[in-house]
Simulated assay, not measured.
Amino acid sequence: MLKLWGRGSSVNVQKVLWALDELGLPYAHVPLGGPFGGLDSSDYRALNPNGLVPTLQDGDGSLHWESNAIVRYLAARYGAGTLWPEDPVARSAADRWMDWVPTTLGEPMRVLFWGFVRDPVNADLNAMAAAETRLAELWGRVDAHLAAQPFIGGERLTMGDIPLGCHVQRWLGFPITRPDLPHLAAWHARLSARPGFARHVMVPMQ
Rank of each mutant, 00 (worst) to 15 (best):
P150H: 07
H145K: 13
D124C: 06
C166S: 01
M109H: 12
W171H: 09
F113S: 07
T177L: 11
T158I: 11
R170Q: 12
H188I: 01
A189H: 06
R134G: 10
G173L: 09
F116C: 01
M128A: 07
R194A: 07
A129N: 06
A131L: 06
P182V: 12
G115Y: 04
P102R: 14
E137D: 15
L172C: 12
V101N: 05
L184I: 10
V111T: 12
T177G: 12
L105S: 10
A136G: 15
W171E: 09
W171S: 06
H145C: 13
L135F: 11
V142Y: 08
P108H: 12
A185E: 13
L184T: 12
W114I: 03
P102N: 12
P120C: 00
H183T: 00
W100C: 06
R110D: 01
G154Y: 10
D180C: 06
M109Q: 13
G196Y: 04
F197C: 05
R141K: 15
G196Q: 02
L164G: 03
W100V: 07
H145D: 11
W100I: 04
V168F: 07
I162L: 14
H167V: 03
L125C: 03
G115D: 02
C166Y: 04
L181V: 14
E155G: 15
M128W: 06
W171F: 14
E137Y: 14
R194E: 07
V111E: 04
V111Y: 01
D99W: 02
G153I: 13
V142A: 15
D99G: 03
V168T: 06
A94C: 02
T133V: 05
A148D: 15
D119V: 00
P175S: 09
G153K: 11
R156C: 13
R194T: 05
L135E: 07
D161R: 13
R110E: 02
A136C: 15
V111L: 04
E107Q: 15
A94L: 00
H167K: 03
E155I: 11
V117C: 02
I176P: 02
N122D: 00
A144Y: 01
S192F: 00
R170S: 08
P195H: 05
E132Y: 03
P175K: 09
P163K: 00
A94H: 02
L135V: 14
H145R: 14
R118I: 00
G165N: 07
L181C: 14
D95L: 02
L164Y: 04
T103D: 14
L172H: 13
P175V: 08
V111W: 03
M109R: 08
Q149I: 04
D119P: 00
G173E: 12
G196L: 01
H167T: 02
M128K: 05
A93D: 04
A189T: 10
P179M: 13
I162M: 02
F151Y: 15
L172A: 11
S192Y: 01
P182L: 09
L172N: 10
R96N: 05
P102M: 12
A186Q: 10
P182Y: 13
A131P: 07
L181G: 13
I152D: 10
P150E: 06
M98D: 00
